[in-house]
Design a protein around this nucleic acid. Structure first.
Lengths: 107, 107
DNA sequence: ACGATATTTCGAATATTCTAGAAATACCGT
DNA sequence: ACGGTATTTCTAGAATATTCGAAATATCGT
C-alpha cells in the first residue's frame, strides 16, 4: 500500500461519525447492514450518512451490494488488513515490534 | 481508548504530509529526529512542519524533548500501539481475526 | 547583552469538510 | 404506469484545514 492510499484511508476513519459507521458495520459481521438501518442506529441525516459512506466506499474500506431497494454495506477486511499491515510495517518498524505487535502472514 | 480519541489520532495520521512526518520519525528510531532535520528531509516550510507537528503532538503520537536550541521529536509507541489495538479490537472484531491479525499482550 | 541558529506564532489566502434540507433518482410491488 | 420506500445528489452555510511568508520567541555561546 502506498503512503497516499494509507493516508486517505486513515483520513476516512479519522472522523468520529465515519469511525462509528465503520465500527457499526464491523459489528454487523458478514451479513452487513443496510444504509437505512445504519441511519436508524446512528441517528444522523440520510444525506449526511450517504456522504460519509461515499467517503468510506471511495477508499475501499466499505463495499455495497444492492438488494432490491435497499443497499447493504459491508466492511472490506482485506483493505483494513492492508492498512494495519502498512501501519505496523511502515509506521512501527522496530518500535512497536518490541511492544509485541505482530501481523502474522495469512496461510 | 475512546472512539473520539482514536478518531482524532487517525485523523492526525490521515494526512499525507503528517504521515510522512510520522513515518520518518519512526525510522529515526529511539534517538528521534530534530525538527530542523525533519524539515531538510521532507522539504516543507518550517511553519508548515511546525503546524503538523503540533497536531501529532496534540494527539500524543509524537513527543518532543528540547536539547539546547533544537527540539527532538520522538514517536510515542504506546499511543500507536493503543491505536492499533483499538483498530483491531473495535474495528476488526471477528473480521480481521480470521485473516491472521493478532496483537499479543506485552509481557 | 549580542549575534546566531532553531522553532513557533501570526496573518492571510485558498481549499476542503461537515451538516442537513430539498429535490431527484432507483427499485419494487401491484 | 403508479405509489411507496430507500438512497443519493444538489445546494448552501458554517466551520476547519492547509500552506507559507513574515515576524516573534527561545536558547546558546561569547
Amino acid at each position: 500500500m502506498k503512503l497516499d492510499d494509507a493516508a486517505a484511508r486513515l483520513e476516512a476513519l479519522g472522523n468520529p461519525t465515519r469511525l462509528r459507521i465503520y465500527r457499526t458495520l464491523v459489528r454487523a459481521g458478514a451479513e452487513g447492514m443496510a444504509v437505512g438501518k445504519l441511519q436508524d442506529r446512528l441517528d444522523i441525516a440520510a444525506s449526511t450518512l450517504s456522504h460519509h459512506l461515499k467517503a468510506l466506499v471511495g477508499v475501499g474500506l466499505v463495499t455495497q451490494t444492492r438488494e432490491g431497494t435497499t443497499l447493504i454495506c459491508h466492511t472490506n477486511y482485506e483493505i483494513m488488513r492492508g492498512l494495519l499491515e502498512y501501519m505496523v510495517e511502515e509506521c512501527c518498524a522496530e518500535s512497536c515490534a518490541p511492544a509485541g505487535i505482530r501481523l502474522p502472514k495469512v496461510a
